[in-house]
Design a protein around this nucleic acid. Structure first.
Lengths: 212, 212, 212, 212
DNA sequence: AATGAATGAGCTTTCATTCAT
DNA sequence: TATGAATGAAAGCTCATTCAT
């Protein structure tokens, strides 16, 4: 019987693990203090590691933040793709799944939303943040537009400018996120989802039943 | 015979004027560099004044930023109220005016939007920012809900959850702002307005003609 | 009887005075600890001022060090020019004065020598140090060569390569500085001067009496 | 049949070899970046080895640098002793050989000179550097003085203060090294040698022919 | 009311050193 | 013997704030 060696969680972790751990700590800190008041000390303390650790694994603070945003973007995309996968066939079902995925706990809890808005708040002055934020929506928008096209054809809906509607829907989605983050009266993910679904029912009355 | 004292226009400027000048400089700097990289030196330089000036007029940086956000909020509200005033009678016309006011140059140029999002980005960790951001929408939402109620009654639209629609519309409005700020492909105020109007036409087909 | 207002020596000093004060403190610290171990804290403490003071007046450490070296170079040149001025007419007297000036207390006390060698020690990797160090000798060498030429003509000395001799003399001068700095057995400025003068007497026997 | 174990030439290298390898790397780095900017990472990278290697073989940085200086000192001494050995009999020939050895490529290439001056630059504040630097010259000076004594007797030169001349010559030698290191106009080892030889020819005209 | 030199806390970053492997 | 992830003290620098003028 071999003795199980004690794990030494702080030392000798795989690089990927460390980086992920630090990104998580960064998210934690940004949500708690904001981007401007997040220091590397906060991050390393949150991660339970030492001062220089961020510079060791990310070279500098800027890079850590970029990687954090990229991580968020990746997680977001993986989430809606998974939701699409699992959704029943047919544009209505897929559409519902896609839009509902925005309000799943793992991507739009208050912590994550705080971080998204923190980055968007600096996007104008930081090209990298802007770029990654844009990338977040490119594929999503494309798929959304495609689903809308199919649905409109299927339902024979008329008088709809698809591009405008796509833009309207993504705008509403983002705005609902803001509402979750900021609203005075406890507006939450589930509320947001309801608003979105109600919009869909109204826009596509023949598919009403799918949008619940 | 008393000597006429030399006027010192820059030094004698009334308190209010100085404060406004500094708030404008703050907006300028936040839009250019972001909230996190805005320093009091940037602000005073932009205003063409000296180092200690912000502390003199606003006591400290935090206070300047709070007042800046309040200023923005006031300007925003004055703008939509003025738009309502000028609008033709009747809920449809008023509604159109209210929602279109969000895309007027003075409140939603990229500079102002950058500043709004900068504050929202820190809202979670700064109760004051959160509060002022909430206040921005209280009256607006109330009026919007009222107008929707009247319009629905007038048009006999059925199956509409007014609260949800109100939330959906304000969300879309905010999301369109984000799109203006961040979008890759030059999405601008006029595009945003089009999206909003197309939404209204679709939601209220009988009043179509008002929403252009 | 008016009360004499207390001087507040640390605040509100003229810029030039502060810069000089900091350069002096830098010299002090470099002599004491070496270039590598001189920190901005040492400098500001030595000057009796606060942390950020160097950055305020010199932007950054590198610039302070460059200016320190420039200051040394200026002081050195002013010293030998003054010595030349005061020297009796005739190449021999001028030559003696020029070369003796290198061993005057204000330019070649151990503190100053330590600083010169500290900079020379980094000259290879720091182009700025190298350049300023070169500039130190350009005019000096020129004048020296001229004086030698005149003296040789005057004394009818033959078989002398003036350029080589100029280089030899400046080299000896620098080497004597090193000896003052490093020698085990208390070799000092006066010893160095003796060595130089003895060299001159030997090289120019007809002018022997001038070289004491 | 025993399997021949794989040689691990890099890992099995004898202590002495490793130490030498690291000293060489230190010299490389000091010449390239200066003493102040030389880090243990630079040294280990230059040596193609890993982070902790210097601490393993030299305990700490200070020790590595001391050993580096000692190595240089040893190499220097071995060089002039070898030169003396090979020189023809008689004080003039020996003297020429001794002084010329200072300008041989292995001891006074720019890299080595940069390192010497780097250490001298810190000598005032680092007793160890000072001591090793002094030791470099003790035997050399002694031999030099002896050779000068013999030569003066042999040539019947009068009016020479031997101690002063010894000091003058070593000073000139060091100063010529500085000139090689710093001069603007490509002054090199061969130029330095010429200056020294010309000095000797002038000082000892009867032995002129030996000093070429 | 306004200036701007000065302060000093606090930040990011570097790097010698340690130590599990 | 050698590695390199991790540490943490200490550095340079920034900047909100103070205050003599």
């Amino acid at each position: 019987m071999t003795a199980i060696p004690k794990l030494q969680p702080t030392r000798r972790a795989a690089k990927v693990v460390r980086r992920r751990q630090l990104i998580d700590a960064a998210i934690e800190s940004i949500a708690k203090r904001g981007l401007g008041d997040t220091t590397l000390s906060h991050v390393s303390n949150t991660a339970g590691l030492s001062q220089g650790i961020v510079n060791l694994h990310f070279t500098n603070k800027e890079n850590l933040l970029n990687e954090t945003l990229k991580h968020l973007r990746g997680e977001y995309e993986r989430n809606w793709r998974a939701a699409l996968e699992k959704a029943p066939e047919g544009p209505a079902g897929k559409l519902a799944a896609l839009l509902k995925s925005d309000y799943q706990a793992n991507v739009s809890n208050k912590k994550k939303l705080a971080v998204w808005f923190a980055f968007w708040g600096e996007a104008k002055s930081r090209p990298t943040y802007k770029k990654i934020s844009q990338e977040r929506m490119t594929d999503y928008t494309e798929i959304l537009e495609e689903l809308l096209t199919q649905l409109i054809k299927e339902g024979g809906y008329s008088d709809i400018n698809i591009t405008s509607m796509t833009e309207g829907i993504t705008a509403m989605a983002d705005g609902l996120w803001l509402n979750i983050l900021i609203s005075a009266c406890g507006f939450n993910r589930s509320d947001a989802e309801k608003v979105m679904l109600q919009y869909l029912r109204q826009a596509f009355p023949k598919h009403k039943d799918t949008f619940y």
